[in-house]
Amino acid sequence: MAELTMIQAINLALHQEMEQDNSVIVLGEDVGVDGGVFRVTDGLIEKFGKERVMDTPLAESAICGVAIGMAVKGLRPVCEIQFSGFSYMCMHQVENHAVRLRGRSGGRFHVPMVLRAPYGGGVRALEHHSESKEAYYAHTPGLKMVIPSRPRNARALLVSAIRDPDPVIFYEPKAVYRAFREEVPDEEEAFPLGKSEVVQEGKDLTIISYGAMMRPTLEAAAKLQESDGVEAEVIDLLTISPLDDEAVNQSVQKTGRAVIVHEAHRSFGPGAEVVARLVEKSFLYLQAPIARVTGFDVTIPLFQRENDYLPNVHRILRAARKTLEFVA
């Protein structure tokens, strides 16, 4: 057991998976000699060589398209896209081929690839370096969309993503990368994809979030307990798609009230899907309208204003209280 940052935890997952399976290949821009711009792939090239840790030309579509070919031929490529804002050049390869080759070939081929990318705001970055557009991918059939929130689950989910027989988009909350350390077991650990986690149990209200927004969400939940005596149940989705709606519905059927928190834009965002699943399956349990605390439907502003774009503890508290106070 070691106290690791999320970067170190992801690095551990890559080291261990590459050690035990020589079909795992890491490719991307600056992932080799430089160890990645965030140092996530640090030390891999020294250990596994440049055939397995490929410093590629600066071409995102190629990284993704070549990885599809590798996966078809039995490798397990793990692509790094330096920032999720540059992943859209991969979109046609993901949408047209990665998710379709299994079906198109009638099961003859499948594409066990992972596309890792840091996402989200809060690190005072340049334009295109702070987006949270997981909905693009979550909307795509045949694709899994995973977003960890802490070092330990980042490691254990990446292990599962690499071993998954289908393509996985793995968004890493860069605001969490070095924000804190957590104990991560040395021995192998894999969390199942498609399963959320009840991080905190409660009976009065369910707050659903994921990724970097788990921190303000948990802080808000603690404040609700302290100052309002409210017991909030907090769910960390971990996998955005396929959505663990069973757990979400189970919780809301208990609490009757729900708030969803994400930094992605509100309209057609992941929260909209959560609301739909709740309305479809738990309509009669709901005691108040479901609230969404999200990024606004504007391009995320540069860093002087990004904190006013991003959900924060204050906004979550306000939404939670409004939901709790609602009387039909």
Partner: peptide, 30 residues
Amino acid sequence: SVIPEGLNNLPVAIPVGTQILHAVGVAYAI
């Protein structure tokens, strides 16, 4: 578009040019 076991053809790719990269990936794996 089903590809029988043992036949190393990819199915037809309709979006123009997108399949070119796959041939590089398979060749790299080879």
